[in-house]
């Protein structure tokens, strides 16, 4: 029962770490370049979830002062603010990597890393 309660209480963190591992697995095992970028995106999302979760306070209000309430508790707004910046960074990385994939496709005619490596191997032999 205790374990179950622990899991339910920390479901955000567990979910974030699971997503992180799924993303990492995708990046490392798939030869398709697009899937690698998707994997990176999953990892980014997982970290954003993790970061935002650190600011969560149970039963707290959003950080706006309400004059009618005494002893208000607020959630921590800082992580959410940081993650807004983080999303912008993630976007720019995604855009840049997608544009590189387009270039790679124009050059090799494929976005499968194994096939590209084979082509490069043939090039250096001949």
């Amino acid at each position: 029962m205790e374990t179950l309660r622990g899991i339910v209480d920390n479901i955000n963190y567990i979910g974030a770490l699971t997503l992180f591992v799924i993303g990492l697995y995708t990046v490392l095992t798939h030869a398709n370049l697009l899937k690698k970028v998707i994997g990176i995106n999953i990892m980014e999302t997982s970290i954003f979830l993790f970061f935002v979760s650190t600011g969560y306070v149970r039963l707290a209000d959003s950080p706006i002062i309400d004059p009618n309430k005494a002893n208000q508790i607020f959630v921590n707004p800082l992580p959410s603010a940081l993650i807004l910046t983080g999303i912008v960074v993630a976007l720019s990385v995604t855009v840049y990597s997608l544009s590189l994939i387009i270039k790679i496709y124009e050059e090799y005619g494929t976005i499968d890393l194994n096939e590209i490596m084979e082509m490069r191997g043939n090039l250096s032999d001949g």
Partner: peptide, 26 residues
């Protein structure tokens, strides 16, 4: 292009891992 893509993927993995570390410290 390919070298740059590889560098970008590994660099991003590195940055994300640093960000995770920052989150854990925070």
């Amino acid at each position: 292009t390919l070298a740059s893509f590889r560098y970008l993927i590994l660099n991003t993995l590195g940055s994300l891992s640093v960000l995770m570390g920052i989150a854990l410290i925070y």
